[in-house]
Simulated scan of single mutants.
Amino acid sequence: MTITNDINPMQDQHKPLAGYRATHFSWQVSEDHKVATITLNRPERKNPLTFESYAELRDLFRALSYASDIKVVVVTGAGGNFCSGGDVHEIIGPLTHMTMPQLLAFTQMTGDLVKAMRSCPQPIVAAVAGVCAGAGAILAMASDIRLGTAESKTAFLFTRVGLAGADMGACAILPRIIGQGRASELLYTGRSMSGQEGHQWGFYNQLHESDQVLAAAHTMAAQIAAGPTFANGMTKHCLHHEWNMGVDDAIDAEAHAQAICMQTRDFHRAYHAFVAKSRPIFEGD
């Protein structure tokens, strides 16, 4: 298996992705073409990732930066589980035979998937049921909003297989979600975080019944998709990039961001709707 960091464009820039067909996972778009759902679809193995699915997910999230038709992305897994991580036979085994340059190409590719998720302007909602382990836990972590269940078992289990807890940005992102001490515990021990713990610690925004979590994610996605698309993308950009800013720099960055949003038609629509005492209908421009 050859691992590269080259993009193989699936679409021309700014071309809609509503008609995209995935090869290594399921891809569905809502009737209004605003919400796309990515379903990891190997339920017999609890939806593990392969070299090919990593690369296709990376390329898809990169392409979403140019897809004005998609407003929100939902990520989930089939068969009652989210994702069990890298496939033991199709990834872990081959990694033991790779050279250092090959290993680095692989780890950089997996990191590029997280970068692509954080860089695409669409908010990402993860609907997590059952097992959410290893790289699966990273996919949930890299999402903007996470909905889980009481039965969700989330494990950053890298140390349990002889690897560092530092994987795909976990040491940078997880402490910002649940705090340094809690993140340290999970990354050192590799133990599972229960759904209740995840909710109490702020990893999960909400908990739902297993058969309702995906519907709840779609409800939230539809609510976000009905909002001002450009402003939502700007919000995501600021949430991500202000991690590395001081307060004064962040305030300046948000001043620029807000001034730009004030030039959008959606901002003007909201004003005129307020004056007319009606609800604004945002069109994304």
Rank of each mutant, 00 (worst) to 15 (best):
K153E: 14
G190F: 05
C83R: 00
G77Y: 01
T96S: 15
P9T: 13
S192E: 15
A250F: 01
I260Q: 09
T264P: 09
C261M: 14
V73K: 07
L139N: 02
R182W: 01
T50L: 04
F61V: 06
W201T: 01
E283R: 13
M168V: 11
Y271P: 00
L163T: 02
A172S: 12
G86M: 10
P43V: 11
A226L: 03
Y20K: 02
S194Y: 02
S30C: 03
A273R: 04
T76F: 01
H240I: 13
R176A: 14
L103Q: 08
S65V: 00
S65I: 00
Y271L: 11
D252W: 01
L147N: 03
G79A: 10
A259K: 12
G19H: 10
G162P: 04
K236M: 02
Q108N: 14
N41Y: 04
A116I: 07
G227Y: 06
A126L: 08
M168N: 13
R42S: 12
D249P: 00
D266M: 05
V29S: 03
C120D: 05
T229L: 08
I260T: 12
A126T: 06
Q11Y: 11
A155H: 02
S152E: 06
G179M: 05
A22F: 10
D12I: 02
L60A: 02
A150S: 12
N81G: 00
E31Q: 14
F282H: 12
N205R: 15
T154C: 08
A164M: 08
L104I: 14
Y188Q: 13
I178L: 04
E151D: 12
I281H: 09
M262F: 06
I70V: 15
M245A: 08
V75Q: 01
L40V: 05
G111T: 15
A221G: 06
M1A: 14
N232S: 09
G111W: 01
I251H: 09
M117V: 07
L239C: 09
G80R: 10
E185Y: 13
A63Y: 01
R269D: 11
T149V: 02
H208F: 15
D87I: 03
N244Y: 14
G169E: 07
E197P: 00
V125R: 05
P121E: 08
G179K: 03
R58M: 05
S30Q: 05
N81S: 14
H97M: 08
M109L: 15
R269L: 12
L157C: 11
M168K: 00
G136F: 04
S192A: 15
A231N: 02
E56M: 07
A127E: 02
P123H: 07
G246H: 12
I91V: 15
Q258W: 03
T229C: 02
N81V: 00
S194W: 01
D167C: 13
K46T: 01
T219Y: 01
